[in-house]
Design a protein around this nucleic acid. Structure first.
Length: 121
RNA sequence: UGGAGUGGGCGGAUGAUCGCUGUCCCAAAGGGAUGGAGGAAAGUCCGGACUCCGCAGGACAGGAUGGUUCGUAACGCGAACCGGAGAAACCCCGGGAAAGUGCCACAGAAAAGAUACCGCCAUGAUCUGUUAUGGUAAGGGUGAAAUGGUAAGGUAAGAGCUUACCGCUUUCAUGGCGACAUGAAAGGCAUGGCAAACCCCAUCCGGAGCAAGACCAAAUAGGGAAACAUUCCACAUCACAGAUGUGGUGAAGGGCGGUCCGUCCAAGUUUUCGGGUAGGUUGCAAGAGGUGUUGGGCGACCGACAUCCCAGAUAAAUGAUCAUCCCCCUGCAAAGGGGACAGAAUCCGGCUUAUAGCCCGCUCCAGUCC
RNA sequence: GUCCCCAUCGUCUAGCCAGGUCCAGGACACCGGCCUUUCACGCCGGCAACACGAGUUCAAAUCUCGUUGGGGACG
């Protein structure tokens, strides 16, 4: 394994940063999960996580850690460098990084094919 | 052996790689060392520490607690004991209803110092079916609850009317720090229930809470002050609306307009001051601390000595993968699946609630054998 | 994080403080009937709820404790 650090400088932390992504971003919808991303002009992706409606602190922390772990190992899964927000809603029951990797891979692939189709048309 | 009750403990382990984070060291990027969730971190139900505000002293109001004695910084917590209830252990309950007010639906005669529905008894009347008056509260009936209980005597029938025992009340004696227990005497029954109804008694409590509080401090708007500017200011004169003269200062912004003039609009510009927002620093972790030995105490707990430092994040760190082992389930095996409840946010002592599985101790009941 | 409040038919609510006549009342909605040529209006009837679990009490929507859910204040 090569080192894949995840410092705090590439995490979204302030409310206005999240608002900017929500305002200008494109959305990919999944099962109780929406990925919103907007190009940020830097040379790397930045990560934000928003969890709604999950009351147990244990599950909330678990989801946050899994998403961070996925992002750490797949830093550039969206091609132009963007600010990416994972918006999780109640009912999200993914419990391992492998599951989320499959899920997000599926989501990204379907949207990219759709985009390429629309572009070809 | 089976069942029941109750108390305590554990809450998967080790290693590797990649990440996050606190502290320390080398220090220019960066590197190294070391630490990194719980018994409930939860609910926020109590009690404190800490911080700010308030405060002569006292009383009232309001709130909380409620057998006794200890323990504790304190508590609504804990320990031991007392009483009640109860096959047993255990669990549970705990001031006052003979200070006052209030309530006790329906049913019932009557729901608290008032009385008699069915009854029982006596006397009178009588058409022999009953009826009037009086006595009585043993029995029946109502109800969640009915005016001491049982037995004997007694009586017209009955009744603490009398007696014995039990209960109750009062007084005394003995034991105990005390709650209370035991014994004796007297009274002759007075005292229904509800205080998680108002209330009375005793004790305790000032209010807010780390988003407390302290410090540093952008941008924008607004506030105070000063300077400058505005057909302005100061002084003098006049016929006092205003004009003139002298001196000072300065001719700045926007709209109409080709430009000047003109006209309309706005009140500004600069400096500085303090409050203070975003943001940052601090409070912020050595403590009513843990562990071991030992002394005191029935125990909760307290003392002495030694030793250890054991999370401090801030859109908020403790994670992922792999390997080996442990426990449980399925399976002949190989193998597969699973390992609860749950995540620190100023810190402690409790309570309550959630919790797969496992381990240990004590008590009671039943059965079998000796 | 700290501190508060609330929960009753499908909806809005009364009753709770002072427990009993409450298997819980009213309005709108819904269903059925009457009226009308029909609809509406009106009249009559029906359906339907005390968040959950313990406790106190003879008796709990009401009093006490806990749980769950919902909402609010503090930067």
């Amino acid at each position: 394994m090569q080192p894949l650090p995840l410092p705090k400088s590439i995490l979204l932390r302030k409310p206005w940063e999240y608002r900017a992504v929500y305002g200008n971003g494109r959305r990919i919808r999944g099962n109780h999960l929406t990925i919103i991303y907007a190009p940020n002009g830097t040379d790397q992706n930045r990560l934000g996580i928003s969890i709604h409606g999950i009351k147990k602190a244990v599950t909330r922390n678990r989801i946050k850690r899994i998403i961070r772990e996925f992002f750490r190992s797949n830093r550039s899964f969206i091609s132009p460098s963007s600010d990416i927000v994972f918006a999780v809603r109640n009912g999200f029951n993914v419990d391992s990084p492998l599951m989320i990797k499959k899920m997000i891979g599926h989501m990204v692939r379907s949207t990219s094919t759709k985009q390429s189709r629309t572009e070809s048309l």
